[in-house]
């Protein structure tokens, strides 16, 4: 008699349940997220659409541990990190996440390679210079701009700058890539190129959450979700009042 091994699927990379967030400004407190549920597995690519001010960036900042939710639960790889202290959050940001922003956020006084190396020289472990250099060049090659390693950002085009930023996000080989309107400052053609580079990362098992206004780019993702009224729903699903 033979036995079939029981295959237990790995826990999802990101599992949000009923996550809420209220912003407390000078005016009345404003509920941005009213109970968001989201699951992202390895290799998933998820696009989040929504109007300006709908809470897309807030959601991304909660996923990326820039901020903490007011309620609900956040499991990362099966581990509850809803109330994780800042010191541990910094370590997780370094080890698990890669971030790509709309405005690139490259330091003008550093070369492309030094900008990418920034993610390695962050006090979370230490790599010798040679290994660091090899990783940086590999990341730059992966996004197709290895030859621009010694160029400083002012000498690079918008698309090249965003690819440097993507290389910076990929250099630590994160399990999750978070991109907040990465094509917002680029023309259509360059934007398509950047989205393609991001999508390719999912082919090696990386989870991708892309916040965008562009439906064409969203359509290239595995799943498209819409954030409105503080809730996340599959795109196209209508809210019945």
């Amino acid at each position: 008699m033979t036995t079939t091994p029981l295959l237990v699927p790995p826990p999802p990379l990101i599992h949000l349940t009923g996550v809420t967030k209220t912003l407390k400004g000078q005016d009345e407190p404003r509920t941005i997220l009213a109970g968001v549920d989201l699951t992202v597995r390895a290799g998933d690519s998820v696009a989040i659409l929504g109007r300006s001010g709908s809470g897309k960036s807030t959601l991304l900042s909660l996923i990326g541990l820039f901020d903490r939710p007011d309620g609900g639960q956040y499991l990362l790889g099966g581990r509850d990190i809803t109330r994780i202290p800042e010191r541990k959050a910094a370590a997780l940001r370094s080890a698990e996440f890669g971030f790509v922003f709309q405005r690139f956020f490259l330091l003008k006084h550093l070369t492309a390679a030094q900008n990418v190396a920034m993610a390695l020289v962050n006090g979370q472990g230490w790599l010798p210079r040679r290994k660091r250099k090899a990783k940086v060049l590999a990341a730059l090659d992966r996004v197709g701009i290895g030859h621009l390693a010694k160029h400083k950002p002012p000498r690079l085009s918008g698309g090249e700058q965003q690819r440097v930023a993507i290389a910076r996000a990929l250099v630590r080989e994160p399990r999750i890539l978070l991109a907040d309107e990465p094509t917002g400052a680029l023309d259509t053609e360059t934007g398509n190129l950047v989205v393609e580079v991001l999508r390719q990362a999912t082919e090696v098992g990386c989870g991708l959450v892309l916040v965008t206004h562009d439906h064409d780019h969203a359509a290239k993702m595995g799943r498209v979700l819409h954030l409105s009224d503080g809730l996340l729903r599959p795109a196209g699903q209508r809210v019945i009042a």
Binding site: R93, A95, F105, N122
Partner: peptide
């Protein structure tokens, strides 16, 4: 400000 926020985003601890 942007540089420091970015460094925190890529995992640099506050103390560092």
């Amino acid at each position: 400000i942007e540089e420091f926020a970015l460094r925190r985003a890529v995992g640099t601890p506050r103390l560092l």
